[in-house]
Design a protein around this nucleic acid. Structure first.
Length: 287
DNA sequence: CGCGCCTCCTGTGTGC
DNA sequence: TGCACACAGGAGGCGC
């Protein structure tokens, strides 16, 4: 499941692998993969042909390649299982290839491969440095212009559980289920704690913990928990072994030794330590 | 309008 | 062994 660190690894790979290269042809093999490109697959491939890639950018989990016309970008969201791979042109094609870009230099191909097709690619107009499809996405904690104080203030105004707020990409972007659970474990917070009940210091430490764990994950090449995340060369990341909460059901907490629990939450799973991350006190008490 | 539930999708694992 | 079903979840859409 690609979250910020995994998407950043892919972005860096693309920066090394496709900058300055000119698209000679594009093919869409599954229409669902370009559903966010409203004019349709034919329009996408026609407009990509002949364009040179000038930059590789990211905000949260959104990734985009700017083009030499100065106004358009090829935007990609990897969803659950999307991969952007640079492969030799004659490399085997698996069952999940959705979009393919050939380059005029006849070097590597850029392939969008996606088993579950929650991901997508689209050509989008860039406004104020951000594609329109990502305009609603908040800055992420690794953005130089990330405003920590402002995000903490917004977090404390939320009338929802803290984990729900962490996962809201319009509040702070880049955090998914894995790094949300890791950040909550680091600051000993239960996922159901009301966001509005956090002190300013606690809110700040939580966002800082999310930033720290994602920075550490990036340094290890990301988390390849379900083997669906790989970099542009097909290599896995190595942060899974450093996870303290996610995926560690019935394993001992690395702080206190109690066995971690997996609990159903919002149609998903949450992992927590029953000792370090106690449930919030119920708020609907008389008086 | 804020909040939270539902849905999209397919490979993998499990239980009967 | 084969079938049925639960599970994984990012995020847009929609209902309250």
């Amino acid at each position: 499941m690609p979250e910020l660190p995994e998407v950043e690894v892919v972005r860096r790979g693309l920066e090394r692998g496709v900058l300055g290269r000119t698209v000679s042809a594009a093919e869409v093999l599954h229409p669902r993969a370009v559903r966010r490109h409203v004019p349709g697959p034919a329009d996408l491939t026609r407009r990509l042909k002949g364009r040179t890639i000038t930059g590789a950018h990211r905000r949260g989990k959104y990734l985009w390649l700017t083009l030499d016309d100065g106004e358009q970008a090829l935007v990609a969201h990897l969803g659950m299982s999307g991969q952007l791979l640079l492969t030799p042109p004659n490399a085997d094609v698996g069952p999940h290839l959705r979009v393919r870009l050939d380059f005029a230099d006849a070097g590597s191909q850029l392939r969008f491969v996606d088993q579950r097709t929650f991901g997508w690619v689209a050509l989008d107009e860039v406004v104020a440095g951000v594609p329109t499809s990502a305009a609603h996405i908040a800055r992420d904690p690794l953005d130089p212009n990330f405003d920590l104080a402002s995000v903490c203030a917004d977090l404390r105004r939320r009338r929802s559980e803290v984990k729900r707020a962490l996962l809201d990409q319009t509040l702070v972007s880049g955090i998914g289920n894995i790094y949300a659970d890791e950040a909550l474990w680091r600051v000993r917070l239960h996922y159901a704690t009301p966001a509005a009940s956090l002190s300013a210091a606690r809110a700040r430490s939580l966002i800082e913990a999310a930033a720290a764990v994602m920075t550490e994950a990036l340094a290890r090449g990301g988390t390849s928990f379900d083997r669906l995340y790989v970099d542009v060369e097909g290599h896995q990341g190595w942060f899974e072994q450093s996870l303290n909460a996610y995926g560690r059901e019935s394993e001992p907490c690395r702080r206190c030794g109690r066995l971690l629990r997996r609990e159903a939450w919002a149609n998903r799973s949450s992992f927590r330590c029953p000792q370090c991350q106690r449930p919030p006190r119920t708020t609907n008490r008389p008086g």
